[in-house]
């Protein structure tokens, strides 16, 4: 049973961390929403629509952050055959897909009044859409096999292939002419965003990160339970045929 040794330790650790992550999510979300909607000024060019940024940009960061973590987990799962790594990627995928979806929709809602279009096929928007499909493809792939181990392996390979998309998304706005503007916060020479607008952005980013940790702990717990259920059923079925 050594394969469950680590998950058991993980379950204890996550049970201890979960209340802190959940508490941080609530506090940072309240702070972030207050700063986004009341505690920050309108933009000198974009007016009140700048408030969409406080959802859009943290969601975009999370979509890349979650995917990168999943890809690292996939590498660990493939090389060291660590069962928790496989389960982490599977547990995180729907959350990452959710953040990517939020990023795409809020970007569209922002682009419509400011750019004058809901969607354009520029390098940034297209590469983020591909990221969304990578998430969906991964989720479909891990469930497409009768043998969950094979599904995990196929999913891990897809995650690693898809990792090339992450630097493409990040640097698309610098490498090519895009309608999307370059980065405002993570750029050379420091943020080009006023501190009064950076505060809600960072608060929301913290809230989203804490949310991700909380939900991924819960989902990992579910995945570990599912695996136990599967083991029990398999052994029960084996007993059934023998008896």
């Amino acid at each position: 049973m050594h394969r469950f040794a680590n998950p058991a330790r993980f379950l204890r650790l996550s049970a201890a961390l979960l209340p802190w992550c959940a508490g941080a999510t609530v506090i940072l979300m309240i702070l972030g929403l207050w700063l986004s909607l009341f505690g920050s000024p309108p933009d000198y060019q974009q007016g009140e629509t700048v408030r969409i940024m406080y959802i859009h940009v943290p969601a975009a960061w999370m979509s890349l952050f979650v995917y990168t973590n999943m890809a690292v987990a996939a590498a660990v799962g493939l090389v060291w055959k660590h069962p928790l790594a496989d389960l982490f990627a599977k547990a995180a995928a729907p959350i990452g897909a959710g953040f990517t979806f939020v990023c795409l929709v809020t970007g569209s809602l922002w682009g419509a009044p400011m750019w004058g279009t809901w969607w354009v096929w520029d390098a940034r928007l297209t590469s983020v859409l591909i990221l969304f499909f990578l998430y969906l493809g991964y989720m479909a792939l891990v469930n497409a096999f009768d043998d969950p181990q094979r599904g995990m392996k196929a999913g891990n390979v897809l995650l690693l292939v898809g990792i090339v998309n992450v630097p493409i998304i990040k640097f698309s706005v610098d490498w090519w002419n895009t309608l999307h503007q370059p980065a405002s916060v993570m750029r050379m020479g420091g943020p080009s965003i006023d501190p009064s607008m950076l505060a809600p952005l960072l608060a929301m980013a913290g809230a989203f990160t804490a949310y991700f940790l909380s939900v991924v702990f819960l989902r990992l717990r579910t995945e570990i339970n599912q695996r136990k259920i599967q083991t029990l059923r398999l052994s029960a079925a084996a007993d059934g045929t023998r008896g």
Binding site: T49, R51, G98, F101, T106, W110, A112, P113, Y211, V215
Partner: peptide, 23 residues
């Protein structure tokens, strides 16, 4: 929202629906 209510509020609404639904 300075005339942009139709864009700002749906953005917050979609995020709330996705995050709460996932939870």
């Amino acid at each position: 929202m300075g005339g942009y209510a139709a864009y700002v509020w749906p953005a917050y609404g979609i995020a709330a629906i996705v995050l709460l639904g996932l939870l």
